[in-house]
Computed example of a mutant assay.
Amino acid sequence: MTDPQPFVPILTVMVDYGNAPFLWCVDAPKEVGVGGNICDGTGWDETCPMSEGLWRKFADWAIEFDRTSFYSEDFDASGWDWVAFHERGLQLSQWLKDEVGNAYRVVYAKPCEDPDGRLDERREVLADGTLVQLPAFR
């Protein structure tokens, strides 16, 4: 019998509201969901699992989301380009995977504000750039 694969912590790239959080970490095998928030748009420090330059790119992306009033009555959904937003998020996720290597798994998750959020909701970014569809949490 072979030994099971060792646990690899999971970094999930997923934007949310309030200080532009964008990176979450599951660092224990029994932890569920996306884990705790470990990076947001308020500032970089040495505990972030990425370079300061990459953090700045992530922060700019997350702050743009954080400042968008998806729930306001006057929000014009036609002015928000989800395709471009996700392309940028996936590119950032690939750069993150390049920086962290095999020390972490990297997953990109769409925010619930995306009207098509259930399509390709969660994808793992592999080292070679391949995207692997993961099951939804819902």
Rank of each mutant, 00 (worst) to 15 (best):
T130L: 11
L11K: 07
N19V: 13
I10E: 10
D45Q: 10
W44F: 07
F58V: 03
V13S: 09
E64S: 15
A84H: 03
T42G: 12
P9D: 02
E124S: 03
F70Y: 01
D66W: 10
N19C: 15
R123C: 12
W24C: 00
E99V: 06
I63D: 01
K110P: 07
P9S: 00
L90V: 11
G36A: 14
G18N: 11
G53I: 10
F7V: 04
S78F: 03
C112A: 14
F65C: 03
R122F: 13
A20D: 05
K30F: 11
V132H: 01
W55L: 04
A109T: 14
W44L: 08
F58I: 08
W55F: 05
H86N: 08
V34C: 14
L126H: 07
E64Y: 12
F75L: 02
D45W: 03
D120S: 14
R138V: 11
E121Y: 13
Y108P: 03
L96A: 04
G41H: 09
T47D: 15
F22Y: 09
D98K: 15
W24V: 02
D116W: 14
W80G: 03
G35Y: 06
G41P: 09
D120A: 10
D40Y: 05
I10L: 08
D66A: 03
F65Q: 05
V8E: 05
G89D: 00
D3P: 12
D16L: 02
R123H: 10
A77R: 12
P6E: 07
E31H: 09
D66C: 00
P6K: 15
V26M: 08
